[in-house]
Design a protein around this nucleic acid. Structure first.
Lengths: 336, 336
DNA sequence: TTGTACGCGTTATCAT
DNA sequence: ATGATAACGCGTACAA
């Protein structure tokens, strides 16, 4: 069961009466080397099914070819897709990924990051926990001494490498579509104002309305802390208004599902008398009774891929000063 | 951004005019060492915030403290939970995990496994792809030269370390519950017969019925290839029977969701005139219109934990002959 | 109690 | 074109 042979460069060298360095060169046929000896070496290497010892190489090169990846919850489809993208891009570049969850807990997040540091990862990809206040915490991240690329849930500063989807644009598109179809009373169930994602949604919402010379009715903008209870309360409040909304945009699809359930309990005919819209375009909503009619695809898989590429770029050019940023355009999806 | 200092044992030794080995011993305070020098060393180490170089240690010890984990799809909640359990147990034991998906493709599975081998993982945890026929393929796995622990989707042999949940028992419980409540015509939408999981379900189903001196009606046992189309066809067939079933057990909750949709389209009042049962007890079904009334919890998180522990045991005692097996009892969940 | 010397597998540098 | 040597950071057997 344990590794049967594990031929080393040294062994090959001895057998062929050449020096280890010659073998090394022949195997990495980069340097100029005698065609004859090279063939001989490569053949024997194959016979002995030589496999380079990754541990030794990484040790020598002071590189591990391992990337640490931290996300809040892998059980959320958004993140599992992002991780799939990361995995694909990492393999493509001969990197492997070390993986950890923050469970949206900043302390746990730091614990995981430090574990990764100890493991000697080359760099880190992270989607921040909802409760992480990056401002004031920069030191903790700096202290890791590892290049970091943030993705999707990025810090609200441009002093960091990051890949994200501009939800602002998506929100504008969504409101425009709704307005165009005659939905004038659009409610927004937003997340806590501290979240960058919440601020982007709100700004998009307000700008899109203002652009049509309409006035934003702040009674239609509510906030949930993502608990089912809070969302239910908000929905009930909206439904009780004198002139209730005819469309509801939920912060994400988990909020959406709770909102739908709350409205259903009040006897609302979902997506008929009240249209539901949301963010993320997750496959699981396809199995629910009432998927959102509008959703904003944020391309988690692609974000993951881009994040890996960005990190590798940073690793390859360690002395670049500038912070890299990549913005991915969201896409408005209309489900009929 | 790059590692600021990275103090090494050597540096500490030079500063304190002692030898590197003394520092090493002081830091791993295992060997006998002068209390005084030890304190001095440990203090300086802290000041310089010395961190052992994992790469060097792993190289030295011929160990990586990295475990490879392969699952079909992380987007399936069952596996994301298993991975969470693995992650927790691994951290507990100072291991980290290298992660890859097979996407239920045996070729891809081997590619990923070989990548992990090259990376020098200490051992492997894997839940087999649905299409992997282990019999006849053992050689491929042996060739990795790494200890392997299978979990949940285990090979159909006892010549392997494995952790699994005995679905047979769960199925017996489920059928018993149904029979006890007066559901006599119970359909089973099973998976392909090649799958161990399918055979376990079928045997449980048949045994539970036989135990009550009843005859198994094979017309009520159907097979799906997990595609929506196949499941829909099967459901339609069942509904057209002269005396159709009053309960349907689906292979898993994805099949369940498709089955429910098919029945709904035929105007069936779900879980009223026809009761639905399933396996896995996933949280996502809680968001669907019609979760299964019965479900069998298979404890993926615990399976992951146990698998890690088993692998570590194998790694610690490399010369044990016997194959370790651990069976987890499922639990019948009744949702009202 | 502490120091010396060596080795893990590989690659880079310098010499030949 | 190839060999010799050193070095990466650490642990440890052996010597003192």
């Amino acid at each position: 069961m344990s590794n049967p042979v594990a031929a080393t460069i040294k062994e090959i060298a001895e057998r062929l009466k050449v020096s280890p360095s010659t073998v090394s060169r022949a195997l990495n046929n980069n340097t100029r080397i005698g065609k004859e000896t090279r063939d001989k070496i490569q053949q024997l290497a194959k016979e002995l099914n030589y496999e380079p010892n990754a541990r030794a190489i990484f040790f020598k090169k002071q590189k591990s070819y391992v990337i640490g990846v931290v996300v809040p919850f892998i059980r959320e489809e958004f993140f599992s897709q992002a991780i799939s993208g990361i995995e694909a891009a990492a393999m493509e570049n001969n990197y492997t990924i070390l993986f950890g969850q923050s469970y949206d807990d900043p302390d746990r997040e730091l614990t995981v990051l430090n574990a990764m540091k100890r493991q000697g990862v080359d760099g880190i990809l992270i989607s921040l926990s909802k409760k992480t206040r990056f401002a004031g915490q920069e030191a903790e991240f700096e202290k890791l001494g590892k290049p970091i690329v943030f993705f999707d849930r990025v810090p609200g500063t441009d002093q960091a490498h990051q890949v994200y989807c501009n939800v602002y644009k998506g929100t504008v598109q969504m409101v425009n579509w709704l307005m165009g179809k005659g939905y004038k009373r659009i409610a927004l169930i937003n997340g806590p104002g501290e979240l960058l994602a919440s601020r982007q949604r709100l700004k998009g919402y307000m700008d899109a309305i203002s652009a049509r010379k309409l006035k934003v009715n702040m009674q239609l903008v509510e906030t949930t802390d993502f608990s089912k209870e809070a969302t239910t309360r908000v929905v009930n409040g909206l439904l009780k208004m004198k002139s209730p909304p005819n469309a509801i945009i939920s912060f994400n699809e988990y909020v959406h599902m709770d909102a739908v359930r709350a409205a259903e309990e009040k006897g609302i005919r979902i997506n008929q008398e009240l249209l539901f819209a949301s963010y993320a375009n997750l496959a699981i909503t396809g199995y629910t009774a009432h998927p959102p009619v509008l959703s904003i695809e944020q391309f988690p898989y692609q974000q993951g891929e881009k994040a890996v590429e960005m990190l590798i770029r940073v690793l390859d050019e360690p002395h670049t000063e500038a912070f890299l940023q990549e913005e991915i355009d969201p896409q408005l999806i209309v489900h009929y």
